[in-house]
Design a protein around this nucleic acid. Sequence first.
RNA 1: GGCCCGUUAGCUCAACUGGUAGAGCAACAGACUCUUAAUCUGUAGGUUGAAGGUUCGAGUCCUUCACGGGUCACCA
Length: 513
Amino acid sequence: MTDTEENQNIPSPGTPSDVKKTEQEIIREAKLKSIAESGVDIFPHKADVTHTVYGIVFKYSDSLKEDLEKKEVKVKVAGRLLSIRRMGRATFFHISDSRTKLQAYIREDKVGKENYELFSLLDIGDILAVEGVLFKTRTEELTVLVKSFTFLAKCLHPLPEKWHGLQNVEIRYRKRHLDLIMNPEQADVFRLRSALITQIRNFFDERDYIEVETPMMQTLPGGALARPFKTFHNALGIDLFLRIAPELYLKRLVVGGLERVYEINRNFRNEGISSEHNPEFTMLEFYQAYSDYNDMMDITEELICDLSVKFLGKETITYSDFEISLKRPWKKIKFVDALSQYSGFAREKFKDRKEIIVLASELAPDKTPLSYGNALDVLFDKYVKDHLIDPTFVTHLPKEISPLAKASPDNPDESERFELVIARMEIANAFSELTDPVEQKKRFEQQAEERKKGDEESHLIDLDYVNALEYGLPPTGGEGIGIDRLVMILANQKSIREVILFPLLRPKGDFSW
RNA sequence: GGCCCGUUAGCUCAACUGGUAGAGCAACAGACUCUUAAUCUGUAGGUUGAAGGUUCGAGUCCUUCACGGGUCACCA
């Protein structure tokens, strides 16, 4: 593909001016023009504020009315105008920082007729700074008595209605800025997400891990069983793949002597979109030399309990209709035992490869031909997953679907691997890393066989990785935790789109919605 | 991708078995100096997601399409 061809593929977006303006939008533009004509800079370069809205409310909302009057607290604070109550020559309004709102009171006799008229050109949604002193109204609401105000930005579109706000989920995702303006509780979800990620970094930093960044664009997508996105590098003339996992690079680092590494970054998988899946999602992966999958279970319990206690203040969380206890130790159950327990079939049945494949093929006819490992996976999802609400480590997954994990010493068909399930969702996946290069090569070759049979998600043979293993990977425990899903659990959000700021949606051709 | 549901004013929602598309908020004009879903009076605002079809007549019924939600399948 040439450079020109590549560029032709870039869609040209429409421009806002292509869209017919509504009456309200025309009126707002006219008001902005009037403001400009009165000599006000309509795109000022900065606002010297002394406080944030949140800061004022946090510090002064408990102050006594009399104390505030005595102290004469002067503030200059900026925010978005979210409600106005005009009463002739005086007006009450609230400004907001998407977290907190603060009332202000402007009177013609305090700011002068000219300024009061200028204020009347402001609409709900505009951004301004107010300067004045704090007081409390008759109803004890903390309020800024405005001495002067500064216009900072015009909102050229009407905001959604004040009682119900913005409900339309499609617009909420497509115009996240509007969602954040209108729904402070949604903004809180993203604040929590940020705080959780910061604490995760602290957690690993305290344990002598170092944070690293490995390639997002890989020549050979590996480290997971999934379909990749493909792209092209012009200068090198090669295909590149957006990574489906950082795993193989992180283990190369452990070979190199970085004994404890973690990475928090995006993975990309070219698969379905659902309330639990976004094509790009954030993954925490960490590797600890001289450890195994049992150590990973300990760390996982510790990490998630730490987050829950620090940010929710408890070890019991509410998710959807469930009360979920995070009290340690968490449940552990072997994959085959779980299958047997919830399906009612005897354990022995799951060793019969042919029968299992037939059974799973009936349940998932689209997927056939199934391998034995994939068939077990199908049965697990069918019979077991819906029962796992409290945190459960499902251990000893079939070796066949675990090409990067050590085999279990007491059963060569099983691996030293676990998946953590909470509220029916797979949250984490970990194993004792396979360190034997000869065995690893063999596993890759088996995966290649699966691929020949039509399993597009099989692992590709990565000889460069095998070569790295040949330099010696110490015994290592490794784990991936889906950050988006963890945030869903801790923030009690039912869709992954509620915890990803800009989830992928099919583009719409115009702005008129 | 399959199935089910949704799309009506800027927003949130109505409109019975097909019969003149409505309300609240927002907007506009006016009154109002402690309001907070401010209040009071008045005004304007619509190609009912798109295109076809059935019908004397379609927001409503049928077909196709677009976008979204739920669910199943794949996946973390």
